[in-house]
């Protein structure tokens, strides 16, 4: 196992303060604290070479968990082991085998070209000249960095910067990679590029990757396995396809009619949309064949389309279900 986490907890003490003048004054000498449990009893393991998607709404504890795995945060309790190391012991050997990329925080030095950051990393990670050349060439080619290397970082677009960011994080060939929203704010085309790069890189180097993202596209394209976290607790850990079947035991049936029939759609499934000549139904998997056959036989169907529900819908459902029987 590359990553092992057992009963991980993290709580923060934050001071609370109401808005307003009087309270601001009172706050000066009497502070009220509140303990926020960001991560509650999380356990999981990830084998070498696997890409795992880490999903959850904002503030669910994804980033906190990731920061603990990278050694930035000290866990309140629990055990963790990443590639044979205890992250928060901050051993240089550990730091050399992992990398953390945060979509919102740049490690590139802002006012000078990315190449300078690469050179600093080369020295800090003690990468020898030959390995550095080879790795850099590979990354430059895969990420199309050549024209960007000598421009000051601050003049790069977000997408260009993110590509350089990935290169800076991979120069020392980490065996474990933590990606915290690597595609945030990127346009669809660049997202696609970054995704393809991550998939290819993982295939090539067997890098273990834990990825958080708000974009379902990232997760469906890259991860077979997902972990879902909400209110600091792990609510699902398993295959993406199983989750879909479990939480979305229906398919989306999109039908367009050349002649609008007079029918009670509720009899066939849950109605998602009705528009002049078009109906979108959520139909139970077992009934899909029967229902579509019925439509084709009895109505004037112009077009029919059967799909798995979109990932967003599944995830939203998962969190709603958790909410309804959870608390």
């Amino acid at each position: 196992m590359m990553i092992e986490v057992q009963h991980l907890h993290k709580s923060f003490r934050v001071h609370v303060r109401q808005a307003g003048w009087l309270d601001a004054v009172r706050h000066l000498w009497k502070r009220q604290y509140q303990v926020v449990e960001a991560v509650k009893d999380i356990s999981f393991t990830i084998p070498k070479g696997e890409i795992v998607g880490f999903l959850g709404p904002n503030g669910a504890g994804k980033t906190t968990t990731m920061k603990m795995l990278a050694g930035l945060l000290h866990p309140t309790s629990g055990k963790m082991n990443v590639g044979g190391f205890v992250p928060f012991e901050q051993r240089p050997e550990f730091k050399k085998m992992m990398s953390l990329v945060m979509g919102q925080k740049s490690q590139l030095i802002w006012d000078i070209p990315p190449m300078e950051t690469f050179l600093v990393n080369k020295a800090i990670y003690e990468i020898d000249d030959r390995t550095f050349r080879r790795t850099l060439d590979e990354l430059v080619e895969l990420l199309e960095l050549q024209p960007l290397l000598t421009k000051p970082t601050r003049s790069l677009s977000l997408g260009q910067r993110m590509r350089c960011e990935l290169a800076a994080a991979l120069l020392h060939r980490p065996t474990v990679l933590f990606l915290d929203e690597p595609t945030i704010g990127l346009d669809v085309h660049t997202q696609e590029k970054v995704r393809r790069f991550i998939a290819e890189y993982n295939r090539e180097h067997q890098t273990t990757i834990l990825l958080t993202s708000h974009y379902m596209g990232d997760v469906t394209a890259l991860c077979d396995r997902i972990m879902m976290i909400n209110y600091g607790q792990l609510i699902y850990d398993g295959e993406l396809s199983v989750l879909t079947e479990k939480l979305a035991p229906y398919k989306r049936l999109e039908v367009r009619f050349s002649e609008v029939p007079n029918a009670r759609w509720e009899d066939y499934g849950e109605v998602a949309e009705v528009e002049d000549s078009q109906v979108v139904l959520r139909v139970n998997r077992e009934r899909v064949a029967e229902v579509s056959a019925h439509f084709l036989q009895h109505f004037h169907v112009y077009d029919i389309n059967i799909q798995d529900p979109p990932m967003e819908e599944v995830i939203t459902r998962a969190f709603q279900e958790e909410l309804s029987h959870g608390s």
Binding site: L72, P92, L100, K105, Q107
Partner: peptide
């Protein structure tokens, strides 16, 4: 601002 993390995760 949190940028200090970038130094902490590096082996120096």
């Amino acid at each position: 601002e949190g940028t200090f993390s970038n130094y902490i995760i590096r082996p120096l």
